[in-house]
Design a protein around this nucleic acid. Structure first.
Length: 427
RNA sequence: GGAGACGUGGCUGAGUGGCUGAAAGCGGCAGUUUGCUAAAUUGUUGAGGAUCAAAAGUCUUCCACAGGUUCGAAUCCUGUCGUCUCCGCCA
């Protein structure tokens, strides 16, 4: 969520930013009107409140000194004020709710160095790593590889849960678990993250804090009971909200969290997209990185977080490239996003395996996550960052496809072997 | 699931209708003092909003949250959420 004063004072900058994000700007004019209205009403209402407070004190004094009639007259006065005030409060609630709705619906402002463009075609590659392997046989995709090895089963998953679910078996399940443990170990021992295992169900407030609500309701799986919980679409939700509503000590920042969780997405509106294989599932595994940072350090922390995610691919020997998303392709809450894309031989293309975003104070304002510097400084909003480190399912795909052999077996990357009872090969 | 207790500021904890944004202590910050550490001592110390060019000042809101009663509510009433204790059940 953007800052009210910022929007008020930098209307033109906000407008430009929205346009760059392909976002309609009409709501801004409405916003200005509502803002003026709101301030007028607050002023009037406060003045009445003051009168009420004064009168109430006088009534108390009159009662004590036994001036009953005078007290009764005052009471009637206050009753009138209350009626007037109730009207004003109603107006105030109305305009504040509308403003909050408008404000909560505005996306974040991209950083200056983000390429301006309408869609992903304007994304810019910032670096690539690794050498693409030359195959002297016909490559198979992960579906053919996994099914013939007996480690991947879509048919039975469909039987018990429906389409876009999968079952991993034997060495396939173990590979997934190995990837999770490997990623968590690297991030906690080499990159300084604290491992955390959060709830997989979250409430609406948490979902609002990390921007899933109100705009992306349809992407979630909701529980139908009266609690109104939803399955997490990413660990970003429970982990970033960890300190929501708190005022942290500046000395305790930055904080680094690494969390493994399953993730659940309804993928509404993506029918027909990536229907084959594990690329796009209703349930997938992910190790997520979350940082809480001082504002002045968030850009640097963003670079480091992205590098931390890339490090996993380097250790696994998987070729990738990193792109910075253009203004038109960025997600709602980000000021800047790097996508890391891994090479998939079967598709002869790079596919997203991690998305690392600096949300600046956008989420912190939504969840009221603040910090205070030493001395008598004012409270400020923390900057929040998140990125996959990495998406486990897609890493699983990349390992199968990049390490496949002519006979359909899979060589296991050396760093993973200790996590798989020193198994060197599947099949 | 059944029975009961309780939710006050960074923390502990007073406060049962007006003088309480809130005692006291701890912690934090600033100063004084003893050679350092430590101690002592004095002061200061919550978060929003409106007004203002800004600061100061002024006004206003907030004692889990949302409603209600009242001229007036942290204090009374209702609902919700959460915590604790006992019993039952359970991975």
């Amino acid at each position: 969520m953007l800052d009210l004063n910022f929007v008020r004072e930098s209307l033109d900058a906000v407008k430009t930013a929205l346009q760059n994000r392909n976002f309609p700007t009409e709501s801004l004019e409405k916003f200005v009107e509502l803002d003026a209205e709101r301030r007028r009403v607050i002023g009037e209402s406060d003045a009445i409140n003051q009168q009420r407070n004064v009168s109430s004190k006088e009534i108390g004094a009159l009662m004590q000194s036994g001036q009953k009639d005078e007290a009764r007259r005052k009471k009637a006065e206050v009753a009138d004020l209350k009626i007037k005030q109730a009207e004003l409060e109603k107006q105030r609630d109305k305009s504040e709710n509308l403003m909050r709705e408008l404000l909560a619906g505005l996306p974040n402002i991209p950083q200056r160095d983000v390429p301006v463009g309408a869609d992903e075609s304007a994304n810019v590659e910032v670096r690539s790593w690794g050498t693409l392997r030359e195959f002297d046989f016909e490559v198979q995709d992960h579906v053919d590889l996994g099914e013939s090895l007996g480690i991947l089963d879509f048919e039975r998953a469909t039987k018990i849960a429906g389409s876009r679910f999968a079952i991993l078996n034997g060495a396939g399940a173990k590979l997934s678990r190995a990837l999770i443990n490997f990623m968590l170990d690297v991030h906690t021992t080499e990159h300084g993250y604290t491992e955390t295992l959060p709830p997989f169900l979250v409430n609406r407030q948490a979902l609002f804090g990390t921007n899933q609500l109100p705009k992306f309701e349809a992407d979630l799986f909701h529980l139908t009971d009266e609690r109104g919980l939803a399955l997490i679409p990413t660990a970003e939700v429970p982990v970033t909200n960890y300190h929501a509503g708190e005022i942290l000590d500046a000395a305790d920042l930055p904080k680094y969290f690494a969390a493994y969780t399953p993730c659940f997405r309804s993928e509404a509106g993506s029918y027909g997209k990536d229907t084959r294989g594990l690329i796009r599932q209703h349930q997938f595994e992910k190790v997520e990185l979350v940082k809480l940072s001082l504002p002045e350090n968030s850009a640097e922390e963003h670079e480091k977080l992205t590098a931390n995610a890339e490090r996993i691919l380097q250790l696994l020997g998987l070729p990738y490239r990193t792109v910075v998303l253009s203004t038109g392709d960025m997600t709602f809450g980000a000021t800047k996003t790097y996508d890391i894309e891994v090479w998939l031989p079967s598709q002869k293309t790079y596919r997203e395996i991690s998305s690392c975003s600096n949300c600046a104070d956008f989420q912190a304002r939504r969840m009221n996550l603040r910090f205070k510097r030493s001395g008598n400084a004012k409270t400020e909003f923390v900057h929040t960052l998140n990125g996959s480190g990495l998406a486990v399912g897609r890493t699983w795909i990349a390992v199968l496809e990049n390490y496949q052999q002519a006979d359909g077996s899979i060589l296991i990357p050396e760093v993973l072997q200790p996590y798989m009872n020193n198994l060197e090969k599947i099949g």
